[in-house]
């Protein structure tokens, strides 16, 4: 009886996993089909003559290499800047008086409740006044404000669990706030940092809205816009469209697999979200 229940549990879990991974598997299989061949009327799971050349072909069809370079540049700037601004703000928040902490907490929660669409109109104006439209900084700008209040809060919750005497002692020894942040706080927040790296990477790598709103010069187009251009180019060329989708998705999956051990294992989930 107990064995049957455990067996059923495993079977249901496997079915769920298959269901959630199926779209990706279909995309990968379709991306390797022969371009121009009539689509089969049954589902091919994996084409027998896999056309790996499809991946090279989309680089010739649209300036994929440039989109890729721009996307990588955005991520390479935005992730470290976000780590810096979010961890500094989270650290400062955890060290201030209770009253200041509460104020900043309310500020952050209010920020979380502002829908993205409500800043489109005037962020466009502000970027325009600052002369940042059509530059990479239009895409990276939110990183200077920690990208998301959530990241500041994750660091704040993490640092608040560190016994305050640790920082107090360092301070009495003459350590500056910068030193406490770098030598004591950051090494204690590795789990949070990994979580923030994944989430920030995904945020900027996937960002479709900002380039659509703030970038008009094709020289600064990023991959998400590139994929949309590929789609407008030939909306029914499924193998090539899927190849584009796979190219965009693979880096995220690789990063996720490399870091998920820290991210989703039983303990780090608690580390990330436990307000302790």
């Amino acid at each position: 009886m107990r064995n049957i229940r455990i067996g059923t549990h495993h079977a249901v879990a496997i079915a769920i996993t298959v269901l959630f991974l199926l779209p990706l598997f279909w995309a990968a299989g379709t991306s390797l089909r022969t371009v121009g061949a009539p689509p089969p009327n049954t589902v091919t799971w994996w084409p027998r003559d896999a056309q790996w050349g499809n991946y090279g072909f989309i680089f010739e069809l649209v300036p994929m290499a440039r989109y890729l370079r721009n996307s990588l540049l955005v991520v390479a700037l935005a992730v470290p800047i976000t780590l810096l601004t979010a961890s500094l703000a989270g650290f400062a928040m955890s060290q201030l008086s209770n009253k200041a902490q509460r104020r900043l907490l309310i500020f952050s929660v209010l920020l979380l409740m502002i829908p993205g669409a409500s800043v489109w109109l005037f962020r466009f104006q502000i970027l325009s006044w600052l002369g940042l439209l059509d530059t990479i900084w239009a895409l990276v700008a939110p990183a200077f404000a920690a990208s998301s209040p959530l990241f500041v809060l994750l660091y704040y919750w993490n640092f608040r669990r560190v016994p305050q005497e640790t920082f107090e002692a360092a301070r009495l020894d003459g350590a500056s706030a910068v030193m406490s942040w770098r030598r004591i706080a950051l090494p204690l927040a590795r789990g949070t940092t990994i979580g923030v790296v994944i989430l920030t990477f995904v945020l900027y790598w996937s960002d479709f809205v900002s380039p659509v709103l703030y970038i008009f010069d094709t020289a600064w187009y990023t991959l998400p816009v590139g994929l949309q251009i590929l789609k407008q180019f030939d909306a029914t060329n499924w193998p090539l469209l899927m190849a584009g989708a796979v190219i965009m998705t693979v880096p995220v999956i690789v990063l996720f697999i490399v870091l998920q051990r820290f991210f989703l294992s039983d303990f780090s989930v608690a580390n990330l979200f436990d307000r302790g």
Binding site: A13, F20, A27, L241, M242, F256
Partner: peptide, 28 residues
């Protein structure tokens, strides 16, 4: 139980697939 970390990762994965790629996959 064994493998459940993997199952949890699988459920989380679609959430971080880039939106445009995800939209195009569903279009298909």
């Amino acid at each position: 139980r064994r493998f459940f970390t993997f199952h949890r990762a699988a459920v989380y994965l679609p959430t971080i697939i880039p939106e445009v790629a995800y939209a195009i996959i569903w279009l298909w």
